[in-house]
Amino acid sequence: MAKIDLDKMLAKVKATQWSLADIDWDAPGADRITDEQWPRLKEFMADLMWIEHVGARAFAAMAKKAPTDTLRELYSYFHAEEQRHANAEMALMKRWGMLDGDELPEPNINLRLVIEWLDRYSDEMPVYVLGTVVPMLEIALDGALCKFLLDTVDDPVCHQAFEKINDDESRHLGVGFTVMEMQGHGATYTRMVTMAARLMDPRLILGIASYFPLLNKMRDNVVAMGLSEEKLYECMGKFEKIGGRTEDGRRNPWFQIIKLHSRWVVNRDNRLYHTPVDAIVKVTSYIPRRALPAVPSWVRELTYRPTA
């Protein structure tokens, strides 16, 4: 992936917009979901939709902090595009009879905690922290989950929707990795000191505390759905490969830290990491929903309806 011209990318993003109305959600093929697939797919789609939505919120935060007008606008578009993906996935759920009336599917508790953190603190986070985490989430979770979905689901409408979604995602990643390289450009010492200062920010520590168990939880979910763990790790490996392809990219301390973390996640023998994080996943699963604050109102923006 070559470093991209962000202005050209913005023009391309604007020129390649699509809407839910471009897809015929009632076209034949919905019956290709087998009875056996249906319950697992329902959970899977709910998770996927929420991950898109989490990505959307992160892009919203990045749009506020972006260092240039072009990046600011790109992130505003990506925010909306992630929302579009979540809407399209919800429309697929509707098509497959997975929605209970107009009710939004519930996110799992770890996603719920990440949503809570994003809503409270993401706007305060430096753009480069989110700018490194988001490509990781996109490439690992989104990438792995989408691939799994397309490998196992035979519905042509699903393929049509994901062709569009994947085109968008490849642009998000292109920009994501370019920005990571931009961050790596400059004096190493200064960057390290800045990063160390950021790492001591309690808000960021809280973010890390919700991000770690999310990855392990998603790994468990993915395995439960029948996707091999290795496929998820392959996708995480891509982050390391693409993010570290240039010197600037490698010099980005946030890339190094996320890379290190992804190695811990991938290495199941690393008990020092997995035992406490898996324990947190378990503990968090006992948090009663009513103990959490009300979902932020941006969550209610989701819709499966192509028109309003």
Partner: peptide
């Protein structure tokens, strides 16, 4: 607050994929 993608016959299409009529 979603960016407007374009106007269409019945209304406004915004980037989150919805056509507002």
């Amino acid at each position: 607050t979603w960016p407007i993608a374009r106007l269409c016959e019945n209304g406004i299409r915004t980037v989150e994929g919805i056509e507002h009529q």
